[in-house]
């Protein structure tokens, strides 16, 4: 297992390298530069030339890439070309926290609510808990996060005044964004848990346990849950990736000072350093989280042996 984890972490290096090269090339292929945005008022050519020289943007692209890698290895993410006087590291450090909080809380909520919903629905199949759980799943699947966000604001902030409409300053600010972002996740986790619990119910070992006269409680906890979780764990990786990259929409509805909005702005403004930093941050985050999910997978299902 340890060797497996070490190998997976080592595998991060080529992944990050390829992702960075492709992003670097695409970014430079986009029309315009940080100082020559396609739709802005143009700066005088002499000024552009001096700025590009100052930041090394007049060099051939591979030299620029090598320089960038060199700086990264020294822990320097470079300057932001568009947000004056601020380094990319500062921007990331100041804003990453809110995004990470939003993402992890939403993921946690999806798991903590989704699994019991699915389990209860399966145990009380075609009774009201099942219908309630299905109803919640249907809403979660059918409502894109930004629609859910807008509806939540309309109901719980504007009408009921229970929660603030925007910001990220304390627990009362967290509720609506986290619910909006995790709605889809809750639904998916509940659906998969329900299906897989129903599948497990038909297994021979469950029937054996029932005929032995075991209590329902111990059949469920000892025999069913762990086996039912195995297929559910496989969707957690993609779910988490979706939550992380999709959070910028919710961030924008609730004006949360997270990383998401910088990425979109950075692309439109060709803020090269910031684009690279955010892409790589997300890539590493997704890869690490997937590793965690895979390890959890092996832990839940001892039959799985990574070699």
């Amino acid at each position: 297992m340890t060797t497996y984890i070490i190998r997976r972490v080592a595998w991060l290096i080529p992944v990050v390298f390829v992702v960075s090269v492709i992003t670097f090339l695409l970014m430079h292929a986009a029309p315009g530069t940080p100082f020559q945005p396609v739709s802005d008022r143009p700066l005088p050519p002499a000024v552009i030339e001096r700025l590009e020289e100052q930041f090394g943007l007049n060099e051939p692209i591979y030299i620029q890439y090598v320089n960038w890698v060199g700086n990264i290895l020294q822990g320097d993410l470079g300057p932001s070309y568009r947000i004056r006087g601020r380094g990319v590291s500062d921007i990331i450090a100041d804003n990453m926290w809110a995004s990470v909080q939003l993402g992890t809380m939403s993921f946690a909520l999806a798991v903590i609510l989704g699994i019991p919903l699915g389990v209860i629905a399966a145990l009380r199949q075609n009774k009201w808990p099942d219908y309630l759980s299905t109803f919640i799943s249907v809403i979660g699947i059918a409502t894109p996060s930004f629609v859910l966000a807008v509806l939540l604001v309309l109901i719980f902030s504007v009408t009921l005044h229970w929660f603030p409409t925007s910001g990220w300053r304390g627990p009362e600010y967290w509720v609506l964004p986290v619910v909006a972002l995790s709605g889809y996740g809750i639904a998916q986790v509940a659906r998969y848990t329900r299906a897989s619990m129903l599948e497990v119910t038909r297994r021979d070992y469950v029937r054996t346990a029932q005929s032995k006269g075991l209590k329902e409680r111990s059949i469920v906890t000892v025999h069913m849950l762990r086996n039912a979780f195995i297929p559910v764990v496989t969707i957690l990786g993609p779910l988490l990736a979706g939550l992380i990259t999709g959070s910028f929409v919710v961030e924008s509805v609730f004006a949360i000072p997270g990383i998401g909005r910088f990425f979109v702005d950075a692309i439109f403004q060709r803020d090269y350093g910031l684009i690279m930093a955010v892409t790589l941050l997300y890539a590493v985050l997704i890869a690490v989280m997937n590793l965690v999910v895979d390890v959890a997978y092996a832990w839940i299902d001892p039959r799985i042996r990574y070699s």
């Binding site: 990259t245 999709g246 990425f263 692309i267 684009i275 955010v278 892409t279 997704i286």
Partner: peptide, 16 residues
């Protein structure tokens, strides 16, 4: 490993 939406946005900007 690519952050999906970010990559899509980048692609659409490049080839717009």
């Amino acid at each position: 490993a690519f952050p999906d939406l970010l990559f899509i946005i980048l692609l659409t900007v490049v080839f717009k």
